[in-house]
Structures are given as structure tokens and as C-alpha cells.
Amino acid sequence: MNTKLYYTHTYLTFTNVALVGGGSFPQPGEISLSHNGVLFLDELPEFKRDVLEVLRQPLEDREVTISRAKFTVTYPSSFMLVASMNPSPGGYFNDPNAPVTSSPAEMQRYLSKISGPLLDRIDIHIEVTPVPFEKLSEDRKGETSVDIRKRVTKARELQTDRFKESDLVHYNAQMSTKQIRKYCVLDDASKQLLKTAMERLNLSARAYDRILKVSRTIADLEGVESVNGAHISEAIQYRSLDREGWLG
């Protein structure tokens, strides 16, 4: 993967052309410049909704096509999308002691810029809560970055070996539906767990596939061959923005 991080922060003036590419003489945009790398979008809801919507197809197809009257240009866009956002316009969410609060209408308007179809295409949603002083000041040390790197490298090696016969698929996120069914075989208990989550959270078929892909990766990080209920449960927890009542 490209080690360069493409950091996009000019959300107030950012346009579709700047993101996907284009112009009279088409040039690649940020998503193609981020090919085999990471595209980081800070303050996601502050981008114009129509700008965010153009991400949907490149995230699915891993390429972007620009058509003009006389020719068509296709640029690669296999990138890792990382985005961040505040939980509300004022930066606080459901905090009774917050100095700035947002009304339900403001919250709805703020979050409506991020469509359901776009969220469907993001594998992991993580809600980061404030860290209390006790946690910040404690002496207990967590897992080191060196150990995490070793575990991730080993998981990537497992995936490279898994898809060695394929020229198009190299890691779990790229799996087709057929490959998901082959490498994410679930027992009855795991199927029931996932079925319950699908019904309660009203998840789409695309979210279903992404939960399975993330579950397969969690299993790889543990170094186990089969996906089990614990992996499914953890992957479901990583879709916090799909939960009903997220607005409070």
C-alpha cells in the first residue's frame, strides 16, 4: 500500500471535480491520487452532500470513469477511505453538561449530509467517547505498536496466501459474494446472531456482506481458520451508525 496519506481538509470549497477528477482536459482527482493509499476526509458532514455522493461508485468499483463528448477516461481508485466527524455540530452529543448543545433539527440536518448508501460502503464505524482523566493518567500500558504491526502483518500474509490464485483479489475487503460464501462459513448460532442484527438494525445486503468481511479479518487477526459468533458480534459492534436511535 502507498505510504502517502492524502489529507483533504478544504471541505468548504471542495468540488466534485477535485475529488473524482475532470475538467476540459481530464485530470485525476483526489481519489485516483490516493490509489493504493489512504484518503482521509476530516469533518465529513461539512463536505457538500453531492461531493460525498460521488464517492459511492468508486468505493464499489475501485475505479472512476470520466466521460466527455469525444473520449472516455478511466482512472484507478482503489483506496482506503478514512473519515472523521464530530457527533454533533457543536462537538458534543447527549451531554447534559455541554457548553454548546444542538437541537434535534440541527442534528438531523448535520447528519443527513451522510447518506445511508455511503455509510453502507464504509466497513467500520467507530464511536469514540471522551477518555476520562483516570484513564489518561493510569500507568497500565496497552499493546505496543510493534506487537500490533506483527499481528496485522501476519493477517495480511494469511490473506495473500488465501487469494494467491486470484489476480484481482488480494485481501478480504475485495472479496466477491462468491468468495464471501466460501471463506465466511457460519455455524447455526452465528447465522442466528447475524439474522437478529440484520432485523433489529434494518441492515442492507451490502452491510451484511461487509460484516462478514470484517468478521473474516477479525478471525485472521486471531489466527483462527473459522469465523465464529464472537467475530460476528464484534463486527456488528463496528457499525454504530446503523443503530436505530443514534440521534438520541
Results as ranks from 00 to 15, higher is better:
residue 197 A to K: 09
residue 73 V to Y: 05
residue 124 I to Q: 04
residue 189 A to L: 01
residue 207 A to T: 04
residue 70 K to N: 15
residue 161 D to R: 09
residue 225 E to S: 13
residue 110 Y to M: 12
residue 166 S to E: 05
residue 185 V to Q: 11
residue 17 V to E: 15
residue 34 S to R: 09
residue 154 K to A: 11
residue 217 T to S: 14
residue 170 H to K: 15
residue 54 V to P: 00
residue 213 K to Q: 02
residue 171 Y to W: 13
residue 130 P to A: 02
residue 56 R to C: 05
residue 32 S to C: 07
residue 92 Y to M: 06
residue 111 L to F: 14
residue 80 M to C: 12
residue 190 S to T: 04
residue 120 D to R: 04
residue 236 I to L: 04
residue 13 T to P: 01
residue 68 R to F: 02
residue 130 P to Y: 13
residue 168 L to P: 00
residue 27 Q to H: 11
residue 116 G to Q: 07
residue 133 F to M: 14
residue 50 D to P: 10
residue 65 T to N: 08
residue 209 D to Y: 02
residue 105 A to G: 03
residue 196 T to H: 10
residue 82 V to A: 12
residue 218 I to K: 04
residue 192 Q to F: 02
residue 197 A to H: 03
residue 73 V to R: 09
residue 228 N to K: 10
residue 140 R to W: 06
residue 205 A to M: 07
residue 186 L to D: 03
residue 85 M to S: 15
residue 182 K to C: 04
residue 35 H to W: 10
residue 103 S to D: 07
residue 37 G to W: 07
residue 80 M to I: 14
residue 20 V to S: 08
residue 83 A to Q: 06
residue 88 S to T: 03
residue 176 S to K: 04
residue 10 T to C: 07
residue 242 D to Q: 13
residue 219 A to S: 08
residue 112 S to A: 06
residue 171 Y to G: 01
residue 164 K to C: 14
residue 37 G to F: 05
residue 216 R to M: 11
residue 33 L to C: 05
residue 232 I to G: 01
residue 14 F to P: 12
residue 17 V to W: 06
residue 221 L to R: 14
residue 48 K to Y: 14
